[in-house]
């Protein structure tokens, strides 16, 4: 929901009970729509969703479709398309000559529909498509239009091929950078969670001794909770919008760290005396922590994880509920 808000949807509401509540109360369920038919079947609901399309989406659609097509095709596929454009156009010039209406002139003489003529036609096609244009063979009549179109499209395809070659190396570098930063971020999350936990233990001890002024307890608790909220957000994002998958033992260690930090937080909060007034900043951060942590459970995260991990996710959710 929050993700949808971030994507710019303004009027999003939420059915809290979810599918389970819907089913349990005996309401009808639509099912057995095969995944493949999904595009065809919801034509009606999709149509109503698109009753109004913001102009900025419409303008980008063509561009996106084109870029998507280029992205999906491999370099060799694009090269094949390029070759096909040239050979097909060459064949068309030759077929015209074969039909007795030559459209190519070589030194003022019409190129015949012979095998030699085919070679000339393909040669002309290459010279045109690569924008070399020697000018020894000339198109006449409608072939002019075709050769211009051929030159434009083949140059575009050629450009896409070059771009793909160039970007491949860049992509490798970027993905390497992503990998390194991702690893570092996981390290940071793990370390910070450890620190939060030990800090929370220290605060509990301080609080239990009743000899330290509450002001100091409050400020330490505030900063600890703030660091915790930041790391919790990172883990939440990691589960909901995974760019990369951390390996299982690592994710498990992080989840365990989260759960124990939540437990530590509970301990501190239960030790705080009645007269302790929670500052607005602290209560805001606590709210955020509890809301984020409640969204972490085996069933609510979008992916399926191993039971060893979901157990901890469920534990985190349970702890967060207790906290609230």
């Amino acid at each position: 929901m929050r993700l949808l808000h971030e994507l710019g949807y303004t009027n999003v509401r939420h059915y809290r009970g979810g599918l389970a509540d819907w089913k349990d109360s005996g309401n009808p369920i639509e099912s057995a729509v095969p995944v493949g038919a999904q595009a065809a079947q919801p034509a009606e609901p999709r149509a109503r969703a698109s009753a109004y399309v913001a102009p900025e989406f419409r303008a980008n659609r063509f561009e996106n479709a084109l870029l998507g097509l280029i992205e999906r095709c491999s370099t060799s596929e694009l090269s094949l398309v390029w070759l096909a454009i040239i050979l097909l156009s060459g064949a068309v010039y030759w077929i015209a000559a074969l039909a007795g209406r030559p459209v190519l002139l070589e030194h003022g003489v019409a190129v015949a529909g012979s095998l030699n003529g085919l070679a000339t036609a393909v040669y002309f096609s290459f010279v045109t498509a690569t924008s070399v244009g020697y000018g020894d063979v000339l198109p006449v009549g409608w072939a002019r239009g075709l050769s211009v179109a051929e030159a434009v499209t083949s140059l575009m395809v050629f450009g896409a091929i070059i771009a793909k070659f160039v970007s491949r190396r860049q992509e490798q570098l970027v993905s390497e950078i992503h990998r390194v930063t991702f690893e570092e971020r996981l390290d940071r999350v793990q370390t910070n969670l450890h620190m939060v936990l030990s800090e929370l233990h220290a605060i509990t001890a301080m609080c239990e001794s009743r000899s330290v002024p509450y002001k100091r307890v409050a400020s330490r608790l505030e900063s600890a909770v703030r660091v915790f909220a930041g790391e919790l957000k990172t883990v939440h994002d990691l589960l909901y919008r995974p760019e990369r998958e951390p390996d299982e033992p690592r994710l498990r260690a992080i989840l365990v760290g989260l759960a124990s930090a939540l437990e530590g937080l509970q301990e501190v909060l239960s030790c705080l005396p009645e007269e302790f007034s929670v500052s607005p900043i602290l209560s805001g951060t606590l709210k955020r922590v509890s809301a984020l942590a409640q969204e972490i459970c085996g069933e609510c995260v979008p992916r399926n994880y191993a039971p060893a991990l979901t157990v901890w996710m469920d534990r985190i959710q349970a702890l967060a509920r207790e906290l609230s």
């Binding site: 929901m1 949808l4 994507l7 710019g8 949807y9 303004t10 009027n11 999003v12 509401r13 939420h14 059915y15 809290r16 009970g17 979810g18 599918l19 389970a20 509540d21 819907w22 999709r46 969703a49 698109s50 009753a51 109004y52 399309v53 913001a54 989406f57 969204e295 069933e299 609510c300």
Partner: peptide, 19 residues
């Protein structure tokens, strides 16, 4: 963007249970 082209549409989301 593909499924929900209209950002102003009234949208209702649901999950398995309790999010």
């Amino acid at each position: 963007r593909e499924v929900l082209p209209n950002p102003q549409a009234e949208i209702l989301v649901y999950c398995a249970k309790f999010t």
